[in-house]
Design a protein around this nucleic acid. Structure first.
Lengths: 213, 213
DNA sequence: GCCGGGGTCCACCGGTCGGTGGACCCCGTG
DNA sequence: CACGGGGTCCACCGACCGGTGGACCCCGGC
């Protein structure tokens, strides 16, 4: 099972046992790839990355406790030479952006075929950036319009709207007048390209700007 | 790799190669379980179920083309003795309800540990119902209040709201007066336990009542 | 210093929404 | 048949929301 001394050392971080087993199985057949560890959450991933100093970390985003983005940041802070490749089911704009900002060198989706996955791991080990086609497209269009990012205040107001609050309620929570809430909301509408509060929330959910707990 | 003649014959249906490999890997170690086929979408699952007549089908819900619910219905229509166990990441009330209505005898989540998964496959093969604890809880509370299910018209109106339409626009699309749209919406509010349109949409998305494409 | 831009704040209209009251139709039950 | 309940439909208020116009503050650049 173990590979040669110059094989690519891979750490797998995913909270689903099924997925971990799948990755191990898919990479296991390759003589030049060696899965040296498995983590079930972000904390474990950081710990194991410290112990094992792998070449590549295959990282899920949604994990209990410390999520993939946070784990990526902490791993790269301690080991800048490690290549983190995100491997997840989701591809919202915000997820992609956050992962890239955290320092991920790759972003793949779980419907990636076997051959593409092993090729991507090899490419990442060589320091190349590996992006799923749909992810690359989203990233480009995202970077192209940075003026659409919401300010902290706008996010607070939008979150209040998503919780079903009226403008007056949201204003009371944030200690601002109802009129001010509307102003923030109008800017949010403009940035998201919508013209009512309900659509603003659904679009924000689609793009991953808002979490849905 | 192949098991004894009285082994449980399992068909795996999932569009993620990683997940398929994981399931095969996890079940592969068990001498009394035999993965006899893999399908990458619903159509393939139906075809392979016809050819192989497995004892248990491990079925993902979100798949391109024919989804897991539709595949389950068609498989059970032709082979009522087959046990379909849903194995998915999501656990919205609507997903669970639709799967059970389609005839699934089990509903597991992908964070199920290895031992629980193999035990569940064996139990399903014996004809037992296997539900993840959180799924069981949701199913009970769902059945307990059937008065909360939305009528077709209410769903149409709610979908219009989710698309960001005004009451007048939705009324025009459905050929009813704006006032009528409001009435439907008020009933939706009551059933969902909310009191404004935005919260109605978010709650509906949470519960899986509305799709989010 | 001054100017400009981004972020945050607010007051005032007109249209829309949330809520009440009531009507019709269909279908199954007593 | 009569009755009742569920589903669909509609008209009318009061309150709220979407939009305009403008103010303040902070910070960086010329």
């Amino acid at each position: 099972m173990s590979a040669g001394p110059d094989a690519v050392r891979v750490l797998v971080a995913d909270d689903h046992p099924v997925v971990r087993a799948g990755i191990v199985g898919l990479l296991g057949g390759e003589p030049d790839l060696d899965v040296v560890g498995e983590a079930g959450d972000g904390e474990q991933a950081v710990t194991l990355a410290d112990e094992l100093t792998p070449d590549v970390v295959l990282m899920d985003l949604r994990m209990p406790g410390l999520d993939g983005t946070g784990a990526t940041q902490r791993i790269l802070a301690a080991h800048p030479e490690v290549r983190v490749v995100v491997l997840t089911t989701y591809e919202t704009d915000a997820d992609i952006l956050r992962a890239v900002e955290a320092g991920a060198t790759g972003y793949l989706l779980k419907d990636t075929p076997r051959d593409d996955l092993v090729a991507a791991v090899r490419a990442a080990a060589r320091g190349e950036t590996v992006l799923a086609p749909s992810v690359a497209r989203r990233l480009v269009t995202q970077v192209r319009r940075p003026d659409e990012r919401l300010t902290p205040r706008e996010l607070e107001v939008l979150a209040g709207v998503a919780r079903g609050g009226s403008n007056a309620q949201i204003g009371a929570e944030l200690f601002i007048a109802e009129a001010t809430v509307k102003t923030h909301l109008l800017r949010v509408f403009a940035k998201l390209g919508v013209d009512d509060r309900t659509r603003a929330v659904t679009v924000a959910l689609e793009r991953g700007i808002l979490r849905q707990p």
